[in-house]
Amino acid sequence: MDREDRTVYEGGQGEIIEKKSRFIATVKPVKTEEEALEFIESLKKKYWDATHNCFAYIISGGTPLKRCSDDGEPSGTAGRPMLDVLEGESLSDVAVVVTRYFGGTLLGTGGLVRAYSGAVRAGLDASVLITRLRGIRLLIGTDYTGLGKIQYLLGQRGIKTLESRYTDAVELSVLVPDEEIEVLKQEITEATSGAAKLEEKEKCVFAMIDGEPVILEGK
């Protein structure tokens, strides 16, 4: 992954109706093409009686892997528009299947593109999307005199505390994006006149979920 990217933390399902045709979008986070293909096959089995099960997925890497299928719809009216929505949201490591139950009225090329695009957006609206960041867990040791200054600096950068311990001194554990670590350490050192103890711990990939920092991958 890049320094930061967007992905699906928790998949969801959305549905729209166009001229009595049902379009059901199911979204899932995936890490490999094998996972994506297994997910697609499971949906085809679940919705075996559907008119179409179109799909799109993007797997991150040096060169992202992108695949899509119209599954019998006119060429370019389903899979490509679905992929365009994922790309427009800058998402990776995600797969989506849009299941269509034909309602008896033809939608035309433009109508199909709008319907499949709209279904994917409905699926994403029902999912939890996150921005993954590469960073470092920083351990900050301070006395109570320096605590307020440190909390102010963290607040200015939108950095929330992962863990905290209060004894005769204070120990804070925070997740800091790679590009901010050196500047933050310098600011804390200057604000506390060198009294704060700073220790870089493990590198990790993290995200803010419901306003709280969550480690996704430790390295």
Rank of each mutant, 00 (worst) to 15 (best):
E15K: 07
D210H: 11
V214Y: 14
G12P: 01
E187G: 10
E34Q: 13
T7P: 00
P177G: 01
N53L: 03
V113I: 15
T109M: 08
V170S: 09
P74H: 09
V27L: 04
G62D: 04
E182T: 14
K66I: 13
V98S: 10
T7A: 00
E38N: 12
K28T: 13
G12C: 02
V27I: 11
S21E: 12
V30F: 05
T109F: 05
G218K: 14
P81W: 07
Q13A: 12
D5R: 13
R67H: 06
V176A: 11
T161V: 15
L86C: 09
K45P: 05
R121A: 14
D178A: 15
T26I: 15
T189I: 08
T99V: 11
V183Q: 15
T189P: 12
P177M: 06
A191L: 10
T77M: 07
G108A: 03
S92K: 11
L162T: 05
K19H: 14
I140D: 05
E199T: 15
I188E: 09
E87I: 05
G211E: 03
R137C: 14
G61M: 01
L153K: 09
K149Y: 14
G79I: 13
I136R: 10
R121L: 13
R80A: 14
T131Q: 08
P64T: 01
G76S: 02
G148W: 12
T63Q: 09
P64W: 00
I59N: 08
L91S: 01
G211R: 04
G118L: 04
I59T: 13
V96D: 12
E179P: 11
R80G: 07
G61P: 01
R165Q: 07
E34M: 13
A50I: 03
V170Q: 05
Y101M: 07
E217F: 13
G104E: 05
E182R: 07
L184C: 11
P81T: 01
M1S: 09
V120D: 00
A119G: 09
L162R: 13
K20W: 10
T131N: 10
Y144H: 08
E171A: 13
T99R: 08
W48R: 15
K44A: 13
L124D: 00
R137E: 14
G123W: 02
K28D: 03
E200R: 14
R6Q: 04
S193M: 12
K45Q: 12
E163W: 15
S90L: 06
A50F: 12
M1C: 11
G118Y: 02
K185D: 06
S117D: 04
G110E: 09
Y57I: 08
G88K: 05
I209C: 02
T63K: 10
